[in-house]
Simulated assay, not measured.
Amino acid sequence: MKSLKKQRRIQVIALAAVALVVSTALIGYAMRDGINFFRAPSQVMAEPPAPTEVFRIGGLVEEGTLERGQGETVRFRVTDGGASVPVTYTGVLPDLFDEGQGMVGTGRYINGTFEASEILAKHDESYMPREVVDALKEQGVYKDPKGGS
C-alpha cells in the first residue's frame, strides 16, 4: 500500500514538472517577437545588428539633418555624441519631434540605415527615455535640464 502512494506521488511530481517546462516554453515562444533590445548609435556603429533583428535606437535628433521627403517619408540622423546613425521613417511624426530633441525609434538596421517602423519623441521639456539618458551620459554629452549632472 505504501509503495502505491509513493508511486502516485512520483507520478504527480513528474507531471507537474513536465507541465512547468511546457508552460515556460510556451511563454518564451509567445514573447520572442515582443522583446526589443535598446541600442545607442555608438553601439549600432561598433557592432551592426543583423538586418532581420528588430531593436530600439535612441538619442538626439542631430541638428541640420531633418529632411522631409515626398509624401510621409522623413530622413534624419540620430546621435549620442559619439556616433550618428541615418534613420528613415515613413509615417506621421509625433508633434514634439524636432532637431536637437530626444527620440526613440523601433525598427531594423538595413544597408547602413535604420528603417524605423515607429518613432517616439519626448513629451515635455524635461523627459527623455532612461536608456537615451544613460547612453548620452556614457558619451559625456548629457545636460540635465534641471541643472544637475
Rank of each mutant, 00 (worst) to 15 (best):
A40L: 04
A40C: 05
A40T: 03
P41C: 07
S42E: 05
S42H: 05
S42P: 00
Q43N: 06
M45L: 15
A46N: 05
E47P: 00
E47L: 07
E47A: 13
E47I: 07
P48L: 04
P49T: 00
P49E: 01
A50R: 00
A50G: 01
A50T: 01
A50M: 02
P51V: 00
P51H: 02
T52E: 13
E53F: 03
E53V: 02
V54M: 10
R56S: 06
G58H: 05
G59H: 04
G59L: 06
G59R: 03
V61D: 03
V61H: 09
V61T: 05
E62V: 12
E62T: 10
E63S: 13
L66W: 04
L66V: 03
G69D: 05
G69F: 03
Q70H: 13
G71A: 01
E72W: 11
E72I: 09
T73Q: 10
R75T: 11
R75I: 12
R75V: 06
F76D: 08
F76G: 07
R77A: 15
T79P: 03
T79Q: 08
T79F: 03
T79Y: 04
D80F: 05
G81W: 04
G81M: 07
G82R: 12
G82L: 10
S84L: 11
P86S: 08
P86V: 08
V87N: 07
T88E: 14
T88Q: 11
Y89V: 11
Y89W: 08
T90E: 13
G91N: 03
V92W: 14
V92L: 15
V92I: 13
V92P: 08
P94K: 11
D95L: 13
D95F: 11
L96Q: 14
L96N: 14
F97G: 02
F97K: 06
F97I: 06
D98E: 10
D98F: 08
D98L: 03
E99I: 08
E99V: 07
G100L: 07
G100T: 02
G100C: 07
Q101R: 14
Q101G: 12
G102P: 07
M103A: 10
V104E: 11
G105S: 02
G107E: 00
G107L: 01
R108E: 08
R108G: 01
R108K: 05
Y109A: 01
Y109F: 03
Y109S: 00
I110L: 00
N111C: 04
N111V: 02
N111T: 01
G112E: 00
G112D: 04
T113Q: 03
T113L: 00
T113W: 02
F114A: 00
F114P: 00
A116R: 02
S117H: 09
E118C: 10
I119L: 12
I119S: 08
I119G: 01
I119F: 02
I119N: 09
L120V: 14
L120P: 06
A121K: 05
K122S: 15
K122D: 12
K122Y: 12
K122N: 14
D124G: 04
E125A: 13
E125C: 09
E125R: 08
S126V: 13
S126W: 11
S126Q: 11
M128V: 13
M128E: 12
M128C: 09
M128F: 14
P129M: 15
P129R: 14
R130G: 14
R130V: 11
R130D: 15
E131C: 07
E131Q: 10
E131P: 04
V132P: 01
V132W: 09
V133K: 07
V133P: 01
V133C: 06
D134T: 13
D134H: 12
